[in-house]
């Protein structure tokens, strides 16, 4: 049988496994990105809390300390491989007596990791806004909190939509490392298929193809989503009359 023939046979035999793996991969990537975004929003908000000169010393110190903590968090998760994080997290928790499942551990690690990257993206997004945006908001009598929530954050988030999509795509691929703690995602299933049939090359080429197609479909979907939001803006432009000076 030719290579292609063996691969086809393998696909016919193994597709339920691969689909199950793909399902886990997608769920981990999508929810990991969403939770990561949520955690990232909390982290950047803590990091950016406005510190005023005349606040009590204790309050100022707590704010500054928390901001430093978020920076250490980001440094840790960006500075160590997700593979190692997964090991530490899974074995560490179980050793301490917390029984935690493969999937819960995997999802947590992806979310925490994504949070670190998205915190940095959010920070860049906020720092990239003109300082005049907050001056304008403050000059209207808004509080620092309102300025952040109503003016700065929505603009930073809007600008970071492509970066969030990028993170999702990275996560589809990087969740493969969770196979080391036994999460049954796509790569894990591929490996199972390979060791069952001894068709290693065929199995991993097959898995590569599934990853590639998934990522390409996701890229296209993300493109459409961002085009949709652009269209929103141009529809707004066209529906309004051009008269008046």
């Amino acid at each position: 049988m030719s290579f292609l023939g063996r691969m086809t046979a393998l696909f016919i035999e193994g597709y339920p496994l691969l689909i199950e793996g793909l399902r886990s991969t997608l769920l981990l990537a999508i929810f990991g990105t969403l939770f990561g975004l949520g955690i990232g929003l909390i982290l950047i908000t803590v990091q950016k809390l406005h510190v005023m000169d005349q606040e009590p010393f204790f309050k100022k110190t707590v704010k500054k300390f928390n901001a430093q903590l978020t920076k250490m968090y980001v440094a840790f998760f960006r500075g160590t491989p997700m593979l190692v994080q997964a090991m530490v997290f899974y074995y560490g928790l179980n050793q301490m007596g917390f029984r935690i499942g493969f999937y819960a551990a995997g999802l947590t690690v992806v979310s925490l990791n994504t949070a670190a990257y998205l915190t940095e993206v959010l920070k860049a997004g906020l720092n990239g806004l003109d300082v005049g945006q907050s001056e304008a908001a403050l000059s209207l009598g808004m509080t620092h909190g309102q300025t952040y929530r109503l003016v700065l954050l929505p603009q930073a988030l809007k600008n970071m939509v492509p970066a969030i999509g990028n993170e999702l795509i990275v996560n589809i691929k990087d969740t493969a490392v969770l196979s080391v703690i036994g999460v049954g995602e796509l790569f894990y299933m591929g490996r199972a298929l390979a060791s069952r049939t001894f068709l290693y090359t065929e199995a991993f080429v097959l898995v590569s193809i599934v990853y590639l197609i998934t990522v390409l479909v996701m890229v296209e979907l993300l493109k459409r989503i961002s085009r949709l939001s652009d269209k929103d803006a141009s529809r707004l432009l066209n529906s309004q009359s051009e008269v008046g000076v």
């Binding site: 003109d130 005049g132 945006q133 001056e135 304008a136 908001a137 003016v151 603009q155």
Partner: peptide, 8 residues
């Protein structure tokens, strides 16, 4: 302001 600073 000089540069408007509208909420974009």
């Amino acid at each position: 302001f000089q540069s408007f600073y509208l909420f974009n």
